[in-house]
Every structure is written in C-alpha cells, then in structure tokens.
C-alpha cells in the first residue's frame, strides 16, 4: 500500500519523539493496522483522524503498549521512543507507560478523592519523598490540568463527583502528574459538551510546550484547531500525514479529500 511521504517542511527543526516503521496489528485473525510508518515530533500536537474503525485508536494504543492488556492482540514492526524499540523484550511496559501517558475517551477517574487520583501515579512511581513533595506535585499537576482553581478547596471530595469536563481535566492532570514525555489522548472530548471541550482544547494547546501530544479525534474541526500535524487513517492504512493546514486545505490523496469534504466517513 501507499505510505504517506514524511514531509520535512517544519518551520522549527523539531526532533522525532516516536518513530514507527511498518507496524502491523492483528486482532486474532483481523489485520487491523497495515504497514504504518510515521514520525511523531516532540513538543507538537499530532492528531489522528479518520472514519470509525479505521485503526487510529488501535495505533495510538500501540504507542504505550496498552494493547498488551488485550490477549488476542499482536503487534509487529518497529516502534521506538527516543530511538529505543519499545517492543523489545527487555523493555518493561510499566516504565514505558510512565513516560508515555494516556487520557481516555470516557473520563475515568478512580473512585477515590481528587487528591488520591492525581497522587496515584507519583506514588506508584516513587516520585515524592514525603507528603509535602507529593502535595507540591499534585498541585502542579492540577494547575497544569487547568482545574486547580475549581477543586483546590475540595481535594478530599471523590473524583467521580465532578462534572464531565472537570473529570476529563482531572484525568489529564492525573496523566501529567507522572511527568510523561508523550501524552496520548484517545478522543478526549467525545464525551464532553462544547464548553468543556473548549476548555480541554485550550489545555492541550498549553501542554504542547512541554510534551509531545498525540490526539485521536473524530472532529476535523478539533484536529484543525489543536494540532500542528495530522495523520489520516483509512481501513487500517495511514493514508496521508503532514502539516495540519496542508492536509485540510490541500490534501494530496483523493481519499483524504473525500473524507474531509464529507463524502466518506
């Protein structure tokens, strides 16, 4: 199949954070991802778009080996983080996931307090030496998640009691609390109302300063709003990858054009 050429037209010279080469994913007998090769840049928001079932979420979950938790899923090809193959035998997926955090489609706060939700990651990774340090990490993460002002007076309240948008920002705060290098977001706004979506999108833009962010989205407008790079998936193939503005205004592949103009999808 046809692979999107990797364009080196970036304004700022940015380093590649994650590189994927000829990645194949199988669910039992189903070939879900075919020959995907892509370079994801540091300090950049990359969005994956495409019709439902095109494999964009599956590919995203390969990037921090979340697919390991599914028995029948098999991944082939090479995916590297900072040049290190993440599927190599010696790599501990647990350490990998500490570096490549993830935010999910549905907000999924643990049934614990807001504080414990955020503190959970730092605790299991031993990032704090004492309570004061932990407090500091939690506050920083909540601030970075743009939710500190709303919850600072009720850190002991259960995380499940927040509104949908707040819950999702809490989950983002929870993800950044472990100081990841890459943040994967699987349709983070699909369960949110427009106002909450706007808040989360704003947050994503801020996160770009420190992380490489990869976001899967159904909404082309959202991709256009938040991302600098866009990859279009179709039937398990990466059809086109490039600057967001270029993909949306001047796609090279006819399938991309059909999708963007609403003829397929």
């Amino acid at each position: 199949m046809y692979d999107a050429p990797l364009r080196k037209t970036d304004v700022e010279a940015q380093t590649t954070k994650i590189a994927a080469r000829d990645v194949q994913v199988y669910y039992g007998d189903t070939h879900a991802i075919k020959d995907v090769s892509v370079d994801l840049l540091d300090k950049t928001v990359t969005s994956f778009i495409g019709p439902s079932g095109c494999g964009k979420s599956t590919f995203l979950r390969c990037l921090n080996r979340m697919n390991d938790t599914i028995d029948i899923c098999r991944v082939e090809g090479l995916i590297s983080l900072d040049g290190q193959d993440i599927y190599e035998k010696r790599v501990d997926p647990v350490q990998l996931r500490a570096k490549v955090g993830m935010v999910f489609q549905k907000p999924n706060p643990f049934p614990k307090s807001i504080y414990d939700n955020v503190a959970y990651g730092p605790k299991i990774h031993g990032m704090a030496r004492n309570k004061a340090e932990l407090d500091e990490i939690v506050e920083k993460a909540l601030r970075r998640g743009a939710i500190w002002d709303e919850v600072k007076d009720r850190l002991d309240a259960p995380g499940t009691g927040l509104s949908g948008g707040q819950q999702q920002r809490l989950c983002i705060a929870r993800a950044v609390a472990t100081e990841p290098e890459v943040l994967l977001m699987d349709e983070p706004c699909s369960a949110l109302d427009p106002i909450a979506t706007a808040q989360v999108e704003e947050l994503i833009d801020e996160l770009r300063e420190q992380y490489s962010v990869v976001i899967v989205t159904h909404s082309m407008q959202q991709a256009a709003r938040v991302s600098q790079k866009t990859a279009f998936f179709h039937l398990g193939n990466l059809v086109e990858y490039g600057e967001t503005s270029q993909i949306f205004t001047n796609p090279t592949d006819p399938r991309t054009e059909s999708y963007i103009t609403g003829r397929i999808g």
């Binding site: 959970y120 990774h125 704090a128 030496r129 004492n130 309570k131 340090e133 932990l134 100081e179």
Partner: peptide, 9 residues
Amino acid sequence: DATFSGDAP
C-alpha cells in the same frame, strides 16, 4: 505499598 521511601526521582 506506595510509600514515600522511594529513591530520588
């Protein structure tokens, strides 16, 4: 088992 006795981050 998550304690503060961790090594330096």
